[in-house]
Write a protein that binds this DNA or RNA. Structure first.
Length: 573
RNA sequence: GACUCAGUAGCUCAGCUGGUAGAGCACAUCCCUUUUAAGGAUGGGGUCCAGGGUUCGAAACCCUGCUGAGUCACCA
């Protein structure tokens, strides 16, 4: 009866589960199950010598079966990969009773079940290293059928490819799509190698607040929440920059944090509402120094992940070998458009933007115009790793003014494959200038810029005590992971990317139906007929409903006594 | 937010000009003791995303909505 909303295959599996229990086999045993080898260790370690691997224990998920009467092959998948199993009826069942093979293995196990096996390793006639199973145990019965993906000669057939299901049910993606498991291993390795690189330099890994009373450190709209006890508005951080600088004020020479940041903005294949940045601040350094650090660090990541500085990304081969190309923003624009805008005033910039067909509006100041021209004409063309330096001051309220050029700041971005992967400054440590910059942001906010930065009095107080000259960096871990794993979308490097909730069908509780006089055993059938709420039921045509119910009763062989038309009529009214 | 494309069995997909649902894998029953996208025989399985409309008749055509993807916009 509860089976009504299950597919045929799910019903079969639930019946198998019951049958296992009837035979005294616990489908979800509590005991530990220690393995002696992983699939990979067996494949690597096996030699043809007789003595080798007589007795191995392996656990994993059953991924395929080829049953040939009294013998069968199956594939077991553990974290490392797959290993072929050989089940021989008479070896598994030594006596007269063959039910362990004929019933338990052949009928009650399914693809997707997690089992443990003991046996000895051998090589088949076809030359595949396999395990001859002597004993097997059920470790976890699977009640839903897995997508079936087949492969031959590197060709994949019937790949589980629907992006929506892959992201919503990432575990399925990980089970059946082996390359996906590798993407996330690479991501972990990427983080690990950056952490190692920075820790070797004796910088301190720190944690700073995610819930912040004032959001700052970037230009973005925040998520807003509320602390009940304090009765206070809090924001999920959009960056952790200001907190890390307070730690530099506090006397640490180098601090970094792998930070989940949150931005309440549109989603795209480059943007997820929550994403990871690594921010690093080092005292007594400047942005030139930081460029060299980034080069070295990212080059090392490429070497760690690929054993080469060259990484294939889409149609491009990207080479992270140091040193990277460097352009000032003006040079880059001149390089790609042939126009030198470095001496232009606002009017000339506006005209140039129009000539280059860059979309602009009247609210844009000089800095924004330059930024727009750069974004439209250069960014996408920068495929090989490139540093763009010296940004307009208006766009960078936390960066130190350029040591020689008026109107610019000491800032750089690293651009790879047409996208920014990092952003860094010689950090502004002049508290008077910083206050002024915040005040300019306030003016922007008043004009309606909802991403202008808030004035953070607490942060100003800190740097008024004196912050050493400091180089700061934010590097987008997700974007770097995309490049390093040749992924086209940020969703492919996040285990659980943000998705709209699936629409839930409203289902009324059984009591609401029984109150109408409907026997409890009929409620699932009424719901199966499409009337999942009593309100919907009240709209129903009683004669039609009666027919539907009798039909379902017969079709699913439920074996209830059909209600009369009169009875159904009463239910609906 | 705008536009384009898509949603059919557990999975991957067909389904023509509107005539009432198909394949492969998976599943079930049977055969098969070294197979490997195992094979052979037989069979079951569907809210054709949802709701409206047009029509004698809609999976298909039209409208609205939902979900996803892509492009653009916004945004680092």
């Amino acid at each position: 009866m509860a089976f009504l909303d299950l597919s045929e295959q799910e019903i079969v599996r639930r019946k198998a589960l019951e049958e296992l229990q009837k035979r005294g086999i616990n489908p979800y045993p509590a005991d530990r199950y220690d393995v002696s080898h992983t699939s990979a260790e067996i494949k690597e370690g096996y030699t043809d010598e007789e003595s080798a691997m007589k007795d191995v224990t392996v656990a994993g998920r059953l991924m395929s079966r080829r049953i040939m009467g009294k013998a069968s092959f199956a594939e077991l998948q553990d974290e490392q990969g797959r290993i072929q199993l050989y089940f021989n009826r008479d070896e598994i069942c030594e006596g007269e009773d063959k039910s362990l093979y004929n019933d338990v293995f052949k009928k009650l196990l399914d693809i997707g079940d997690i089992i443990g096996i003991k046996g000895n390793v051998f090589k088949t006639r076809m030359g595949e290293i396999s395990i001859n199973v002597r004993e097997f145990v059920v470790l976890s019965k699977s009640l839903r059928p897995l997508p079936i993906v087949k492969e031959k000669d590197g060709q994949t057939y019937d790949a589980f490819s629907d992006p929506e299901q892959r992201y919503r049910q990432r575990y399925l993606d990980l089970i059946v799509n082996a390359p996906v498991r590798n993407v996330f291993r690479k991501r972990a390795k990427l983080v690990q190698s950056i952490r190692q690189f920075l820790t070797d330099k004796e910088y301190l890994e720190v944690e700073t607040p995610i819930l912040q009373p004032i959001y700052g450190g970037a230009a973005a709209r925040p998520f807003k929440t509320h602390h009940n006890k304090l009765d206070q508005t809090l924001y999920l951080r959009i960056a952790n920059e200001l907190y890390l600088k307070k730690l530099i004020v506090g006397g640490y020479d180098g601090v970094f944090e792998f930070a989940k940041d949150f931005r309440n903005e549109g989603m795209s294949r480059f943007h997820n509402p929550e994403f990871t940045q690594m921010e690093l601040y080092v005292a007594y350094k400047d942005y030139n120094w930081m460029m060299e650090l980034v080069e070295e660090m990212v080059e090392r990541v490429a070497l760690k992940l690929h054993g080469s500085t060259k990484v294939q990304v889409g149609e491009h081969e990207i080479d992270f070998k140091r040193p990277w190309k460097r352009y000032t923003m003006f040079e880059a624009i001149e390089h790609f458009t042939g126009i030198d805008i470095s001496k232009m005033d606002e009017a000339a910039l506006t005209e140039t933007a129009k000539k280059l067909e860059v979309e602009i509006d009247d609210s844009m100041g000089k800095g924004k115009l330059i930024d727009e021209i750069f974004g439209e004409t250069c960014e996408a063309k920068l495929i090989q790793p490139t540093f763009i330096t010296d940004y307009p001051v208006e766009m960078s309220p936390l960066a130190k003014k350029h040591r020689t050029h008026d109107g610019l700041v000491e800032r750089f971005e690293g651009i790879v494959n047409g996208k920014e992967i990092c952003n860094a400054y010689s950090e502004l440590n002049d508290p008077v200038d910083q206050r002024q910059r915040f005040e300019e942001q306030l003016l922007l906010a008043k004009r309606g810029d909802d991403e202008a930065m808030m004035l953070d009095e607490d942060f100003l107080k800190a740097i008024e005590y004196g912050m050493p000259p400091t180089a700061g960096l934010g590097i987008g871990i997700d974007r770097l992971a995309m490049i390093m794993t040749n992924s086209n979308s940020i969703q492919d490097v996040l285990f659980f990317p943000q998705m709209r909730p699936e629409k839930k069908v409203l289902i009324d509780p059984v009591e609401l139906y029984t109150e109408l006089g409907i026997p409890a055993e009929w409620v699932p059938i009424v719901q199966k007929a499409g009337f999942t709420t009593v309100n919907e039921l009240k709209q129903a045509n009683p004669n039609k409903l009666h027919q539907q119910l009798c039909g379902l009763n017969k079709k699913h062989k439920i074996g209830l006594q059909n209600p009369t038309q009169e009875e159904v009529k009463v239910w609906v009214e």
